[in-house]
């Protein structure tokens, strides 16, 4: 462990230097303040043809405007736009509104995108509006993702015009409620007796998943299922001297991370879970009941009473995960 500590110290210094560099970059950046950025429009610049301007929208939609102005996006668009797109305010997303204004307003008048449930604008086109600015980082893999390919609109999960949630402008108050609109079964699983602290508010779906598309089939944030689990349970990452191969391949062979009625979020009660793969001779194969002569094998933590380090062992005699 001593050698590791020194390596960690070196990495810590390197990490600190990196942070310091970023800090220096930030401190040096006031000169890059929005007002001086090359892409920033000059205040009072004329609007492109067909656009009415945010003030015109406010004239009729004052209540909506007030709510939007209180959001982070509203503050950015209405008060501190960084480029010509953001300066268009409401029309950045809803499209040019001059025709709508000149026609005297009204639902569906002027061909604007309303983003309402009954909006006839194709989902792809609606989402493209959001992707004008939000294509990078977590949304890089949106196109072709499970949600995109099933016509899920950004506005199914996000409420842009007001802060319905403390963070991320979600459609519901919490992430679980937002995801739970469609993933009813997963939401129900959080109520099971053996669960991660989701219903206690200590975790959310997005701690493990990125609903905007990722490089895994189940929209996990890390590169694989196990790597997602290891981001918190790093003690199970190894490499270990003695490896339990199904553990190394997928934690989900034994666990259901969304919740279970069996201890440790196991998919089945022990010893039956272990007995699905272990048909060696002697004690693994007995059907076993609740009589006390069977106690060591079934009571308490069952097989893991003795095979306690079942996720892997670094002990020279840990080949049976008992050391």
């Amino acid at each position: 462990m001593g050698m590791k500590r020194s390596a960690i110290r070196v990495l810590g210094v390197a990490g600190g230097a990196a942070v310091a560099l970023v800090a220096v970059a930030v401190l040096g950046l006031p000169g890059l303040a929005p007002a001086q950025q090359p892409s920033t429009p000059a205040a009072g610049a004329p609007l492109p043809a067909g656009y009415a301007g945010a003030e015109a929208c406010k004239a009729c939609h004052e209540e909506v405007d007030q709510k939007f102005a209180a959001t982070k996006m509203g503050r950015l668009f209405l008060k501190h736009p960084r480029n010509t797109l953001e300066r268009l305010g409401c029309e950045t997303c809803h499209g040019p509104g001059k025709a709508h204004v000149e026609a005297g307003g009204g639902r569906g008048v002027g061909g604007m995108i309303s983003f309402a449930k009954n909006d006839k604008t194709p989902v792809e086109k609606r989402n493209a509006v959001c992707l004008q600015c939000h294509q990078k980082s977590a949304r890089l893999f949106w196109q072709g993702s499970q949600h995109e390919s099933r016509d899920v609109a950004c506005t199914n999960c996000h409420k842009i015009m007001e802060d319905a949630s403390p963070k991320f402008q979600l459609a519901k108050e919490t992430v679980i409620e937002t995801c739970g609109q469609c993933h009813l079964q997963k939401r129900a699983q959080t109520m099971r007796s053996s669960h991660m602290p989701l219903r206690e508010g200590k975790m959310t779906c997005t701690d493990c998943h990125n609903p905007h598309g990722t490089v895994t089939p189940t929209l996990l944030k890390e590169n694989s299922l196990n790597e997602t689990c290891y981001s918190c349970h790093a003690e199970k990452r190894g490499p270990f001297l003695w490896v339990h191969p199904p553990v190394q391949e997928s934690c989900a062979n034994c666990h259901d991370p969304h919740g279970s009625n069996h201890e440790k979020m196991l998919k089945l009660a022990k010893p039956r879970l272990c007995q699905q793969c272990h048909i060696e001779s002697r004690h693994p194969t007995e059907p076993r009941g609740r009589s006390f002569d069977q106690a060591r094998f079934v009571f308490g933590r069952s097989c893991t009473n003795c095979h306690a380090v079942i996720h892997g062992s670094n002990h020279p005699s840990g080949n049976a995960f008992k050391r």
């Binding site: 294509q135 199970k236 190894g238 270990f240 306690a308 670094n314 008992k322 050391r323």
Partner: peptide, 20 residues
């Protein structure tokens, strides 16, 4: 008495490059 090992220290580096 018996002695059982606990999870060893470990370290993981990941470099990634993604684009569209």
């Amino acid at each position: 008495a018996g002695r059982l090992s606990l999870p060893p220290d470990n370290m993981a580096h990941t470099l990634s490059l993604a684009g569209g």
